[in-house]
């Protein structure tokens, strides 16, 4: 069954969506969308490094993402540069570095588009293993960090005064994002990973009254969008990554309309 590229695409895409959902909720709550994007941009440097050193590309990507997250965490303490400025510098620099490094490797012909925009239909068994084992690990870690993350999101200083070790939680969460980026790269590509993290979460928000509801709804919407996107990609012969993002955006639009209707209903009622 796993020989069928469509089954592998579905399993991989849905797997990533199920992980990215709850994680994306926290990204949205903590206003780290741009951080996720910057981290994803740095992944291309990881790809180049992987090819250069002839090591597993996902491992290299993960290493670069982790390094990047740690560096950013440190630099955020400097007040004279705003976080979005720092993120911009890092994101564009690492993307550019990655592209420059790749251009030097004349012997290696890679499908750059597949890394930038994803190629879900090219998911192999090794990728599936990465996605599901890595995904379960990320979800387990996220479950353990869930309440601490909510506490530092609500009020970091209060959490610290109550004895919570805020910094380790912050760094651990950055590492989870890095892991997810390394996993999701193949599905939607480096440039579209942020969409996977934040669009389903944004679409789920109007229908949730507690954090867990929102996480579950986000995972479900993300999985649905992946399925729709892959189906659309096959039907209309469109690139798979962008198709998935378009499907997510459609669900988000639908959610906006439904949320608006509900608000109107509440006002009338």
């Amino acid at each position: 069954m796993l020989d069928d590229f469509l089954v592998r695409a579905m399993l991989g895409g849905v797997g990533v969506a199920l992980v990215a959902g709850p994680l994306g909720c926290v990204v949205v709550w903590r206003r780290m969308a741009y951080f996720g994007g910057a981290l994803a941009h740095s992944a291309l440097l990881g790809v180049a490094l992987g090819l250069l050193l002839a090591i597993d590309i996902r491992l290299a990507t993960l290493a670069i993402c982790v390094l990047f997250a740690l560096l950013l965490g440190r630099l955020q303490r400097r007040r004279e540069l705003a976080t979005d400025t720092l993120l911009g510098v890092f994101a564009e620099t690492s993307l550019a570095l990655g592209l420059v490094a790749l251009s030097f490797m004349e012997t290696v012909r890679i499908d750059l588009m597949a890394y930038l925009f994803g190629d879900v239909l090219a998911i192999g068994r090794g990728d599936l293993l990465w996605i599901w084992v890595g995904g379960l690990a990320v979800l387990a870690a996220l479950a353990a960090l869930w309440e601490p993350l909510l506490r530092i999101t609500l009020h970091a200083e209060l959490a610290q005064a109550e004895g919570l070790a805020v910094e380790p939680v912050r760094y651990a969460f950055m590492l989870l994002i890095a892991l997810t980026v390394a996993m999701a790269m193949k599905i939607v590509g480096i440039l579209l990973i942020v969409a996977l993290l934040i669009i389903p979460a944004a679409a789920a928000r109007p229908f949730a009254r507690n954090p867990e509801q929102m996480a579950l709804a986000t995972a479900a919407l993300g999985a649905l969008a992946v399925a729709l996107g892959i189906f659309g990609s096959l039907t209309f012969d469109t690139p798979s990554g962008p198709s998935i993002v378009v499907a997510m955006a459609s669900l988000f639009g639908l959610s906006l309309c439904l949320g608006g209707l509900r608000l109107m209903g509440r006002r009338v009622g």
């Binding site: 949205v28 709550w29 909510l150 928000r205 949730a208 009254r209 507690n210 954090p211 509801q213 929102m214």
Partner: peptide
């Protein structure tokens, strides 16, 4: 953006 009840 974070839906959470007072009780929670």
């Amino acid at each position: 953006i974070l839906p959470i009840t007072l009780h929670r």
